[in-house]
Design a binder for these strands. Structure first.
Lengths: 337, 337
DNA sequence: ACGCATCGTCGATACGCATCGATGAATGAC
DNA sequence: GTCATTCATCGATGCGTATCGACGATGCGT
């Protein structure tokens, strides 16, 4: 492997000059820059990351902390991971995977060993054991999700309250007076992620404002639970029923149950779900969805992190950013007359 | 951040002694070891990764190269990622995410900058553009998957041929003489991953050996395609039909189609699918499955990598390891009489 | 009691880059 | 033509660890 010294030798300059050509932190004449760049090209020189980290006190690596929970929809987490990784590359950073089986100790480790410059935490719970650690780490930390107490932390998430509010508002506009919200599956509820509460709160706020009724019904991954919830919903309304099912797994079950009862979404009943546009279009009846914009959330998380890193921010920052959600009307909801 | 020099000072020894206590590469008396360990504890010392990499020419990081293909079942990839990450930790290594949007250049980058000691490549295609690069990298590379030409490469994968063979053998034993194999979905077929061919070859070999007929029918993510394939299967057999559907998405569609035609798996028809035990048990009718053992494949991939790293292997290694698959009989297949 | 091997520890150096102060060349003002 | 100034480059040093050779202390045999 060639070093910057080799490049310097080949270009007939000092090693420090090579360094300055690369960093641009001091003016370099056009002539020597060309020479150095040619030498770099010819030797296929690439700076050694370890040495760079040691001398520059910056690893250009961001740690991504993911809990692996088999019950959860891992596919959707992958979307975050994917966008985070490629956005990080755009900012000239790499992503180190930090799994949660090390627990909070893992955070201490990667920061203590200075393997990364900062941490992005995903799947934040209301009372997350990682939070006290995160607050005391002397590197920037960005949370995707919002804990009960976000003080002293930098958070970003989709605006679930807006999502809940808009969903109810839309269904009310379409003429529904009773709207059934089906909870996330128990595995999610048990994790006490607070987007559930925020979403539900949004639905309640809208209901109050518009004078409609919102029912909160149990969700589950088994047909029986959803079937029961549908029963309750039907019993509670004289008009056409409306469902909001933010959990993707539950959507599928709900769709089949409605189908087996002869209820056609968009005709006899309204259904709002949550899915990527691609997936929503693929449904037998294209699904009206709340887009929680995971890609945008991921992008911004990385952007915030990189800004914090540039500002050499040592002081305890605090911020809370909500990404607006988008409702896309497709065929599964009634049209307002 | 405390350094090993600080530890040395606190323990009243030389810095090199601290290093030897940590690495164990030279004998240290019980007394000084205790002193040093106490100092480490007290200062919460952690070795600096950059310096360690620079001096020791080893980063203790493994690059994991994943293509993000939205059409594919990303959830199942997560299972690999998760196990790879925690296994790597057991071997005292970390995982760096290398996304494929940089293409083969990304491999050059992470190796050239010496960000990682080795690479694990996932989702290998028959003629993968990353292979020529992989062969010429001067770090160990482990492939999960098998390209058309595995020469000069270290590969590991599930034994898909065995999986195909056993599936057919099992259904033949249960009395089926015509067995329909439904292809993976087009998105997978188009990638030219060669496990498809290996699986199909296994089914053909078994068919030949046992004198039964194997039909290869088109797969897809839409109901129509599968429905047609089921039609063809039913038309071609006088006895009870048998299906092998290795693609998870297709399994679901198949199940519903069979249901809507009044065919009950395990009674009127046999179905073998592929899923984790947990998922298989959750089905309305517990599914007889081929377990492709992603966790075991992942574990071994990391193990092989770490062995290559320990042996300081520079010479071009070559090996091919197949992880035996396991068929678990549940209720979706007929019992042999 | 003396030389000799062994064990445990120390000091010095290298790893490859970033950065700071210094130096020489080129430029402009008078 | 001289001096002050700016610009481009060089040399030296530090970052924190691993490793090698060396050296003093200890135990052994005779």
């Amino acid at each position: 492997m060639p070093t910057s010294k080799d490049v310097a030798l080949a270009a007939g300059v000092a090693q420090s000059t090579v360094s300055y050509v690369l960093s641009g932190k001091r003016p370099i004449s056009e002539k020597t820059r060309k020479k150095v760049e040619a030498a770099i090209e010819q030797l296929t020189y690439q700076p050694n990351a370890g040495a760079r980290a040691l001398a520059g006190r910056r690893t250009h690596v961001i740690g991504l902390v993911i809990p692996f929970i088999p019950e959860l929809e891992m596919g959707s987490i992958m979307e975050f991971v994917s966008v985070i990784a490629s956005t990080a590359r755009q900012f000239d950073h790499d992503i180190l995977l930090v799994t949660d089986d090390e627990g909070a100790a893992g955070l201490h480790r990667v920061v203590g060993q200075q393997i990364c410059d900062g941490l992005i935490l995903m799947q934040i719970e209301d009372e997350d054991e990682r939070l006290p650690v995160a607050r005391n780490l002397n590197v920037p930390v960005v949370l995707i999700g919002i804990p009960r107490d976000p003080s002293g932390l930098v958070c970003i998430d989709a605006d679930f309250e807006m999502a809940g509010e808009h969903s109810v508002r839309d269904l009310a506009t379409a003429g529904h007076s009773v709207i059934s919200v089906i909870n996330w599956q128990p595995a999610v509820m048990d994790r006490h992620v607070n987007y559930v509460d925020r979403f539900m709160h949004g639905t309640d706020v809208a209901a109050e404002a518009l004078g409609v009724t919102v029912l909160h019904l149990p969700g589950g991954t088994d047909r029986a639970t959803i079937s029961e919830s549908v029963d309750k919903a039907l019993a509670s309304t004289t008009g056409k029923p409306a469902f909001i099912a933010p959990d993707r797994t539950i959507q599928d079950i709900l769709r089949r149950i409605l189908g087996s009862r002869g209820l056609t979404p968009g005709v006899d009943v309204s259904v709002i779900g949550s899915a990527s546009p691609t997936l929503a279009e693929l449904q037998p009846i294209p699904l009206t969805t709340i887009d929680l914009r995971p890609a945008e959330v991921s992008r911004r998380a990385v952007k915030i992190m990189c800004e914090l890193l540039e500002n050499d921010s040592q002081g305890p920052h605090e911020s809370l950013e909500l990404v607006p959600t988008v409702i896309t009307h497709r065929s599964s909801t009634l049209r307002p007359q």
